[in-house]
């Protein structure tokens, strides 16, 4: 590397030339067949994509809050990595929602350059988000965050593995890529789960508290929303109730290695839940912060 060339090429006429892959990332779904499968209802597909996209987006937002606060530098890197993977899943899912049903996209002032997936992320009200509540609960300590990540990634991996066979090419493509990512997230969380459970008395105590804090949000993951059921029948989506056996098996294996027992799961989840847009008070705060800059500049270019 030449000492003098730190700025080389920075003002070249063609801005794309400065980057290995150019800067034209505006079409999030580039290269994927986005034709709507004939058996699928547009509005339902859009809602389903919002559900899965919001899960990823809100979980990424919570993980991002660990940045500069993680217990070790290696965890700074790992947690950011997981958040980046989830952000990478959220983008095409929100873009797919917008494409399937443009009426889901909040209206912005005429001439606003905000792309549809950003309009969905940054201009919807909290009530319009469809994520499960597990993703929005506050981080708590590293133990609670580890439990939440294990639960989330175990559930999401089981879902994505089935979604690879979706008749919707976009959902199938997103799932095929995400399976590899979320398998790592689950592995990362499981390793810490066992390490902390088997570490010191203090870490074991915190893991038990983390389980207590997170477990009330588990049941909601398996309650099927009407949209999920209909899309499962149409071959585009997955009935979450079908994920329970896989989930229980993985959690039982990890808990056995950790010699920890999860609390009994409540027999029924509080409904309506996150899939219906009903969220916690902490969620409104999270969304307000996340959207603050974008909403202050509805015609801004970023």
């Amino acid at each position: 590397m030449d000492d003098g060339n730190a700025y080389d090429g920075l003002v070249e006429a063609d801005p794309d030339a400065r980057w290995a892959f150019g800067t034209g990332f505006h079409d999030t779904l580039a290269g994927v067949d986005d034709a709507l499968p004939p058996s699928v209802d547009r509005a339902q597909l859009a809602t389903y994509c919002l559900m899965l996209g919001d899960d990823a987006l809100i979980m990424a937002q919570r993980l991002t809050q660990w940045t500069t606060c993680a217990p070790e530098l290696e965890e700074e890197v790992a947690l950011a990595n997981i958040a980046l993977d989830l952000l990478g899943q959220a983008g095409p899912l929100l873009a797919r929602a917008a494409l399937a049903d443009p009426t889901t996209v909040p209206s912005l002032p005429p001439g606003s350059p905000v792309p549809p997936q950003d309009a969905l992320a940054f201009f919807r009200d909290p009530r319009q988000f469809r994520n499960v509540r597990l993703t929005e609960i506050e981080n708590g300590d590293f133990a609670a965050s580890t439990v939440r990540l294990l639960v989330f990634s175990t559930w999401r991996l089981a879902l994505l593995q089935r979604l690879v066979g979706s008749c919707d090419a976009v959902l199938s493509a997103v799932a095929a890529k995400a399976v590899k990512e979320v398998a790592y997230h689950r592995d990362y969380a499981a390793r810490w789960f066992v390490t902390l459970a088997q570490g010191t008395q203090e870490s074991r105590r915190r893991m038990a508290s983390g389980l207590e804090a997170v477990w009330p949000y588990v049941q909601e993951l398996f309650v099927a929303h009407r949209v999920e059921l209909d899309l499962a029948v149409a071959g585009a989506g997955v009935d979450p109730a079908k994920l329970r056996a896989d989930f229980d098996q993985v959690i039982a294996t990890v808990c056995a290695a950790a010699e920890l027992h999860p609390p009994p799961t409540a027999s029924a989840a509080a409904t309506p839940g996150g899939r219906d847009g009903v969220h916690s008070a902490a969620f409104a705060e999270l969304v307000t912060e996340m959207q603050s800059v974008a909403r202050a500049h509805p015609c801004g270019r970023w």
Partner: peptide, 12 residues
């Protein structure tokens, strides 16, 4: 500014 980044791309 991570939690307030104004687009998905800028956040990533």
């Amino acid at each position: 500014w991570l939690t307030r980044a104004p687009s998905l791309r800028r956040k990533a």
